[in-house]
Every structure is written in C-alpha cells, then in structure tokens.
C-alpha cells in the first residue's frame, strides 16, 4: 500500500503546475510512495528540542549602500523572451473580453 494515492499525485501536480498522463501518475504514486516511506525514518528521531537549521549561513541583514548601479539593457533583458514586442514581455490574454 503506497503512502500516497493517485488523488494525492493529482493534487500536488496541480500545485506544481504540472500536467501528467496516466502512466506518469501511476509511476509517481509508486516512486513517491517509496521515497516518502523512506523519509519517514526521520520520525525515529526525537527532535522536540532541536532548533531547525533554516539557513546554511547563520547571518543576518547583509546591507549595501542604496545606490543605483547599471542594470541590464532592455534589449538584453528581452532577448530570451519567447514573445516580446521590443518593450514588454508578451503573454496570453489574462482578462476576458474583446481585444481592442
């Protein structure tokens, strides 16, 4: 019995913005189930008094002077965009209604 169901996989795929075919879902039920079951071994450890290690370097507030530095020229910022008009990134319509 896998730790997770096909419905779980579908729910997570929705959160992750992935579309999976049935075969991929079946495979992920099995693989994620195995991996999550393996991860459950962490529950053997009592960590009630352990501070979580939230940062790799325990540093706070790296400041710099608030000065304007040269930034990427617009042309270069746009050069990898799948669709642009020379000024803006273009995406499919977001709001309903007639194009005008």
């Amino acid at each position: 019995m896998s730790k997770i169901t096909k419905q779980d996989v579908e729910y997570v795929a929705g959160l992750a913005q992935l579309r999976l075919d049935d075969a991929a879902k079946e495979r992920l039920v099995r693989e994620m189930g195995d991996i999550l079951a393996y991860m459950d071994q962490l529950n053997e450890l009592d960590t009630s008094n352990v501070e979580p290690m939230m940062h790799a370097m325990e540093m706070t507030n790296v400041f710099r002077q608030d000065v304007v530095e040269p930034s990427l020229p617009r042309e270069e910022a746009l050069m990898n965009a799948p669709v642009h008009d020379g000024e803006y990134f273009i995406v499919p319509r977001i709001l309903e209604g007639d194009a005008s």
Binding site: L36, L45, T47, V50, E51, P52, M53
Partner: peptide
C-alpha cells in the same frame, strides 16, 4: 512532518 523535521535533523547532522 517533512520539511521542518528535515531542517531539525539537518542541525543534528551538522
């Protein structure tokens, strides 16, 4: 259950 737990065990490993 997973992420926070792992961050705690990460400290134990360190």
């Amino acid at each position: 259950a997973y992420y926070l737990k792992a961050q705690k065990v990460r400290r134990l490993i360190k």
